[in-house]
Write a protein that binds this DNA or RNA. Structure first.
Length: 287
DNA sequence: ACGCGCCCCTGACCGC
DNA sequence: TGCGGTCAGGGGCGCG
């Protein structure tokens, strides 16, 4: 569930169960799920068991659960196919279950947080928190730009960053060090909404265009979040295993050959960065 | 320093 | 039915 709306759905779903919960046991079924935790599985378990989650936070596509009594947090990156599922303590092992964290909440009782991940690009880690302006973030997240839903996102700084980049605007939207949380789906959707061709050099966009694009990014992300995120299959689900509805609202992504909802011209699909770009050749002219 | 191509991994789907 | 090729929401790394 990798882009900002899907990760936010997971964060919001975990929060009521995790915050205030005591970690009673941790089992690592597949060490590949700890590639971000270099000290290894034993250290990972030792840093969690007996601790309490105090919050549930997110920046871009990273989410983390801060721990009590020192400045550390359990961090999660879902990669392409990661899931964080809330299960009863006796739930059977998930097909692609990698890590299970057993918790006890003062009101809800015993639960399990299950990290399942088909493609193993996602991973968990325990990391130290560092101060980043008005907030604290794990060290592994410190290099990630604030996301556009962050109240401290710097709109003017974003405009300046784009002016300095000669790369295609879509490439820059996907650069998590410039703006975080946007992935392939929402980059295509935002560019379609702002009527900007994905190959347009970022530096050639007017201030007005950049402002319009940023507004559309926020609109698209907010709508997707309100609809529970985008799910094409069972890989992308909330903490209860339920899919989101935003796939029905997509205007460009995944719609190659189908008519543009605005003008009827067939949406074009092109290879881009080992992925695909979807855009309307009429509404989104190259300049 | 940067921008870009490639790689990590599993499974679904398609055409032969 | 089986097999090989292609494709998928991610990011990191090494090269030029």
């Amino acid at each position: 569930m990798p882009e900002l709306p899907e990760v936010e759905v997971v964060r919001a779903g975990l929060a009521p169960a995790a915050v205030g919960s005591l970690i009673t046991a941790v089992s690592v079924l597949d060490e590949r799920a700890l590639t971000r935790h270099t000290p290894g599985p034993a250290d990972f378990v030792a840093r969690l068991e007996g601790r309490t989650f105090t919050d549930a936070a997110r920046r871009g596509k990273f989410l983390w659960l801060p721990l009590d009594s020192d400045d550390s947090a359990l961090i999660a990156h879902l990669g392409m196919s990661g899931q964080m599922l809330l299960r009863s303590p006796d739930a059977v092992t998930e097909r692609h279950e990698r890590i299970r964290i057993s918790i006890e909440h003062p009101l809800h009782g015993e639960l399990a947080i299950v990290f399942a991940d088909q493609r193993t690009f996602g991973s968990l880690a325990v990391d130290h928190l560092v101060v980043d302006g008005p907030t604290a973030v794990p060290t592994q997240v410190a290099h990630i730009a604030r996301d556009p839903m962050d109240p401290h996102f710097d709109d003017a700084g974003f405009r300046v960053a784009l002016r300095r980049r000669s790369s295609a605007i879509k490439r820059v939207l996907l650069d998590q060090q410039v703006i975080s949380g946007v992935g392939n789906i929402y980059a295509d959707e935002s560019l379609w909404a702002a009527r900007i061709h994905p190959e347009t050099p970022a530096s050639s966009l007017s201030t007005q265009s950049v402002s319009r694009l940023l507004a559309e990014v926020r609109t698209v992300l907010a709508k997707a979040l309100a609809e529970g995120g985008t799910s094409f299959d069972a890989q992308y689900v909330n903490v209860n295993g339920q899919a989101g509805y935003f796939a029905h609202s997509l205007n460009a992504y995944g719609r190659g050959g189908q008519p543009c909802p605005r003008c009827g011209t067939p949406i074009r699909r092109e290879a881009f960065m080992n992925r695909s770009s979807h855009y309307c050749p009429r509404c989104q002219r190259r300049r």
